[in-house]
């Protein structure tokens, strides 16, 4: 895990020591910090291009190019009960925004299971992986364009 963005690695290390209920508490705290994409980035109805097709929680992802060549990631989650999607959005926004693009592009989907546990349902896992795909794809596109 040495190549992971530091905040993401730190969270995974913390969760590795947590039991099931502690893990839930930590992730709920992340979800509580969720806020919708800023209007300067996007307003409803959101474009289909930003829609995570595999996410039952109706998630949308945007990548904003920053002056230093990195990206800031923004999210919308249209299901008010989509706590896992919201928490994952906050985790990615806080741990991947501003990080080197190579680092972002190489975040493996395994981290989702490190964070949410191995008993993640297939549908939920696919949705969270879809959100990560949007982020890593945006970083790869930016790298290719550079």
């Amino acid at each position: 895990m040495t190549d992971l963005p530091p905040k993401l690695k730190e969270l995974i290390d913390d969760l590795s020591l947590a039991d099931r209920s502690e893990r839930a508490e930590i992730l709920i705290e992340y979800a509580d910090r969720f806020h919708d994409v800023e209007p300067r980035i996007a307003t409803r109805p959101f474009p289909e291009a930003n829609h995570v097709t595999r996410c039952e929680s109706e998630a949308y992802v945007w990548a904003e190019d920053l002056p230093d060549g990195t990206q800031k990631y923004h999210f919308a989650v249209e299901n008010p009960q989509g706590l896992s999607a919201k928490s994952w959005a906050v985790i990615m926004a806080e741990s991947l925004s501003g990080r080197p693009l190579e680092e972002v592009a190489n975040v493996p989907t395994d981290v989702i299971f490190n964070i949410y546990g191995k008993d993640l349902s297939m549908g939920k896992g696919q949705g969270l992986m879809g959100m990560l795909d949007h982020v890593t794809s945006a970083a790869r596109r930016k790298l290719r364009a550079a």
Partner: peptide, 9 residues
Amino acid sequence: NEDTLLYPS
């Protein structure tokens, strides 16, 4: 639930 965070929340 599908979302396992809902019950503890």
